[in-house]
Amino acid sequence: MSQKTFLLVLFLVVMVVGLFIKNPFILNMLSLAALSVIVVIGLNLLLGFAGQISLGHAGFVALGAYISSILAIRLNINPWLSILIAVLVSSAFGALIGYPTLKLKSHYLAMATLAIGEIIHSIANNYVDLTGGPQGLAGMPMLSIFGFMLDNETKFYFFIWSLTFLLILLSINFVNSRFGRAYKAIKSKENAALAFGINVHLYKVFIFTVSVFYASLAGAIYAFYLGFISPSSFGLTQSIEYVVMVVIGGMGSFFGVFFTSVILTILPNLLTSLEDYWPIANGLLLILAMMFMPNGLKGLFKWIK
């Protein structure tokens, strides 16, 4: 089965599931899962195809969420326009960070993004006038498409999942295009790719920007979906969780990443009493994955075959 037919089947399954579930709690959870799929697909492009790691993706999600809601609330800008501005500003910011750090080895980007994530988190916490501080920010207007209000969980579910699948399709197409093949070349032998005239640095900056784009888009939609954001949803733990989702799902595998991010978003919501133990579980998962299955679940399946 080719990737795209599988994607179509998955899309139909998700849509049918959406028709049957009426419980708003589950719908809400699944919609949040879709948002984390968007972030993780973006991070997967970076980690799986460019071999670079970002530890501040929750920070970029926060950037998208805060910029768009501040624009919409304080300046009364149309929600869609403010989402657009937020995403563009965040991507530009990502490119600015990526440009110097991606010239160097991968831990520079990791540390720089870790720092950015912490900075955004602390600004969101401390700059109370603008961001509402730890209490968060509320009162985002509802989104509507051509006068059709997205005002309940079911409508949002369909909207978010359609968007998610559109973005997955885009990234699959991207990976299979000329550019995607260039990234494969970079990953397998960087010097060879360089000799073929691929501008490795520029390509890396580009894919980092794309992944920041995905993250901030997810953040902006998250803000308008919940109508409330607070710094606590965008901490370092969240960034690490995104990395765990990609690593366990298998770097570079879209569907492995898809399933792990859905599962790892839903599980903590069901098992809220074990909240304190999640960091331990995440740490163990990362260590074990690196020691025994560097290709994640994808590698495990291949190995069983």
Partner: peptide, 17 residues
């Protein structure tokens, strides 16, 4: 390099947790 970076990140959050 990448897997060792991810590894030490895992160690770090494990210790913290």
């Amino acid at each position: 390099e990448l897997s060792l970076v991810i590894m030490t990140i895992g160690i770090s959050i494990l210790i913290k947790g």
